[in-house]
Structure formats: C-alpha cells, structure tokens
C-alpha cells in the first residue's frame, strides 16, 4: 500500500463476506485494509462497516473485539463511514431481532422485522429493488455518495429494516410488499445502506467509488 495515500479500512469482526467488498475496491484500483485491529482502524481515513447475520451476535462480536466503543469514537472523529446492511442497522439505537439489543445509537431509531403478508410476500426479502429518493431530503440525496442510484436496482437480503426516528437523515426508501422502508440514511459523516452496493453490479460499484472520492 502506498504510504502517501489515504487508507480505507474494512471492519472485520468475523461476520459476512468481506472478500466481495475488498474485491469491489480492487476493481476500482483502490487498496483497502481488512482489519479488526483498533489501532489500524483508528488510523484509517475512511471505514466500511459491513455485516450480515443477527444483530445481537454482531454486537457481541464487536464488544468482544473491543470495537463497539471504538466505532463510536471513530464516528465522532467525523471521518467517513459507510455501514452496509447489518452494519447500517447497528448504527441505530436498538433492535428487536431475537430479543432486545442495544446498538451504537449514532442515529435514533429502531430495527424492526419487515411486516409482510404471506402469500405472496416472503421473508427474508431477497432481491433487486429500485431505490426511491426520499423527496423531503432531495438535496441531501443529490449530494450524497448514492446520488446516482435514483431508480436503480440494488440487491437486498434482509428480514429487518430500520425505523428512523429523525426523518432528516433519510436519503432513500424501497418498496417491498406493503412496506416502504428506509434503505439509505446519512447523518454527518456517516452513511448507511440496507442494500449491498458491493453485490449490485456496476451501479453499486459507483457507490464505493463515490465513497473513495469523498475521502480524497
């Protein structure tokens, strides 16, 4: 890695497919550091906060690796952070997934189970859905790293969604069944997306490209 370049860290806490995220950056010609080392994380200039699986299990892993409070510290330092899927959900106050769990509380709101009617709607929600701009925050959307995603399809795989208490942070929503749920948020230096940009073809790749440009 070139020392004069800004570094992007991908937080490794034992969950999820980190290779696909680092491969996506590789495709952009950007070196990334996959790490769980607190010093390396803090020294980075931007952080990808991924995650799949269960909210509670993820919290436990973060606490075990001394990353829970470190993440809060990182976010407070105003460096860019991108939370993906569970990584986005963990930014919120709490979750009702398999019990009650406390999140990072960076953004006020709760993680709740998608209420869908079966048949025909299934859970987990797995598929490619269009991104709808949250029109109240149009300007914020247009200035964000997901600005090019309006009406683009992105890949979703989840059973829970975030109920955001403060609508000023909402960038975009997505429709599934009878639900219109928040699929992208931004608060200061932190962006969270429910979909997987690293798994959503060229349009998704552009989100990561924008993230890199935002840092540099």
């Amino acid at each position: 890695m070139r020392p004069n370049k800004k570094t992007i860290a991908i937080l490794d806490y034992g969950l999820g497919n980190l290779r696909s995220i680092s491969n996506a950056f590789k495709k952009l010609g950007v070196d990334v550091l996959v790490t769980s080392n607190p010093t390396e994380v803090m020294a980075s200039n931007g952080l990808i906060f991924p995650g799949v699986g269960a909210f509670g299990a993820a919290c436990n892993e973060l606490i075990k690796l001394n990353l829970f409070s470190l993440l809060k510290e990182y976010i407070n330092s105003r460096k860019p952070v991108l939370g993906i899927c569970l990584g986005m959900q963990l930014l919120f106050t709490d979750s009702e997934e398999n019990g009650y769990h406390i999140g990072l509380d960076v953004i006020k709101g709760s993680v709740k189970k998608l209420a869908v009617t079966f048949p025909p709607y299934k859970l987990p929600h797995i598929g490619w859905n269009r991104i709808n701009v949250y029109s109240d925050n149009r300007k914020k959307f247009d200035e964000s790293i997901i600005k090019h995603l309006e009406q683009e399809h992105q890949y979703f795989i989840h059973s829970y969604y975030v109920q955001c208490d403060e609508s000023e942070h909402v960038l975009a929503t997505c429709d599934y069944g009878d639900n219109s749920f928040v699929c992208a948020v931004k608060k200061n230096n932190v962006v969270g997306v429910q979909f997987h940009p690293e798994k959503s073809g060229e349009a998704g790749l552009k989100v990561l490209k924008e993230f890199v440009e935002y840092i540099e």
Binding site: R19, S20, N23, A24, K26, Y155, I157, H196, K199, S200
Partner: peptide
C-alpha cells in the same frame, strides 16, 4: 475466489 474478483452479484 477467481469469480468474485470480476462478478459483482451474489454467488
């Protein structure tokens, strides 16, 4: 390992 270097969809 090789496939996911080029293919940006779920595998």
């Amino acid at each position: 390992r090789k496939a996911c270097e080029d293919i940006l969809i779920p595998i």
